[in-house]
Computed example of a mutant assay.
Amino acid sequence: MPSRRTVLAGGAAMLAAPRPGASAAGSTALRFGVVADPQYADADPHLGLQRYYRNSLGKLREAVAAFNAEDLDFVVTLGDVIDRRAESYDAILPVYAMLRHRHVVLLGNHDYSLAPEDLTAQPGLLGLAKTHYDYTVGGIRFVVLDGNDVSLFAPPPGDLRWQIATDRLGRLAAQGADNAKPWNGSLSDAQFTWFGSVLDDARAKRQRVIVLNHYPVFPANPHNMWDAGRIVELLASQPHVVAYFCGHNHAGNYAETAGIHYVNFHGMVDTPAENAYAIVEIAGDHLDIRGFGREPSRALRLRSA
């Protein structure tokens, strides 16, 4: 029986951003798979929340098989790989290891639902050197945000970000904001500045941008980031940003504003058997989402940069 360290190290080998270069099979189209919120745990269902934790292993195997049958540039998981406990990775990372594609992974709030002795090891448990980063595939710049940066659960004890999170949540609660929830988070000012600089660089290089984050920011929703307003305002000023993909709100959502498509993908964990994942294809001015199970298909028109 391999140790947890061996299992995690083996699974983490796949958890890297795709190398820059041409899209799959030399095609002019960019194609990638999307999974949101598997939230696996060896735990009984929570019927009140419609969470079927153990069932995510079978659903993820089905999704991996579908992805492996396609020519894709990468597969992205939009956070919450697990629901709780570091040992949950022992079961789910070997499923991801069956992918024949690169796997891009984001951290969600539940990825921090760990014992104190394991918390300091995150994000290394998923093989991540950084929690926010960017990469380019097929001429499109993908920007990965870390919405846990300033939160009540990710910063280690004594970190100044914990007090900032407490203050931000308190102000939102005093305003009666729907997203004043302890399971949401926000960007640090340092990450927000980095985000703006990456967007500026992409614009100078005439690259279209897709933002990836665990948390939604638009439209208004109880699951939105605490600082959703400044993020949406920044994106609206960037004509080369075409889409924002997220999870966290398991019911899914979609809206368009300022020419940007905000797509909230459905949570995989939410049903006993019906799955939820997608394959995205971008060619020219078209972004097509082929949804499976609960995930709807969408045909979206992209604005010119």
Rank of each mutant, 00 (worst) to 15 (best):
L160H: 10
A66Y: 11
A43W: 02
A177R: 10
G267L: 00
L93W: 05
K130R: 15
A41Y: 00
Q191G: 02
H240G: 11
T193F: 13
A220S: 09
K59M: 10
V95K: 00
G259Q: 07
Y135V: 04
L187S: 06
N224V: 01
D134E: 15
Y135H: 12
N109R: 04
Q238K: 14
I260E: 09
L145E: 08
L15I: 08
E295H: 11
G185A: 15
R4P: 01
L114Y: 00
L49P: 05
Y96S: 01
F32N: 04
L93Y: 04
Y52K: 01
I140W: 07
S27V: 05
G293C: 12
R168D: 04
G247C: 01
V269I: 13
S113A: 09
S297T: 14
E256P: 02
G108H: 09
D146T: 00
G79C: 11
L169A: 02
D159I: 00
P94Q: 07
Q50I: 06
V35I: 13
M14C: 05
A13N: 03
A129M: 04
N179F: 00
T28E: 14
G58E: 10
A278H: 06
D90Y: 03
A121T: 04
A220D: 11
V263P: 01
V269R: 02
G108V: 03
L212W: 03
A29M: 09
A22G: 12
L99R: 08
W226N: 08
H110Q: 09
A278W: 05
A36I: 09
W226Y: 08
N221M: 07
E295L: 07
V217N: 12
C246V: 04
Y96H: 05
K59P: 02
A220K: 12
G58N: 13
A63P: 00
G147E: 01
G124Y: 14
S56M: 15
K205R: 15
R54G: 09
H240Y: 13
G124W: 09
Q122P: 00
D167T: 10
V209S: 13
G79T: 02
S297M: 14
E62A: 03
K181H: 12
P155I: 00
G196P: 07
R5H: 07
V242Q: 13
P239Q: 12
G124M: 11
G284L: 07
V232S: 14
H214D: 12
H46Y: 13
D37N: 07
R301D: 10
N179L: 07
I92W: 01
D178F: 13
E70H: 13
G11K: 01
N55R: 09
N249S: 08
G229S: 14
A177T: 10
N253I: 02
D200R: 13
A16M: 06
G139Q: 08
L126T: 01
V35L: 03
H286A: 15
A16N: 11
N253Q: 12
E233A: 11
G147Y: 02
G26D: 11
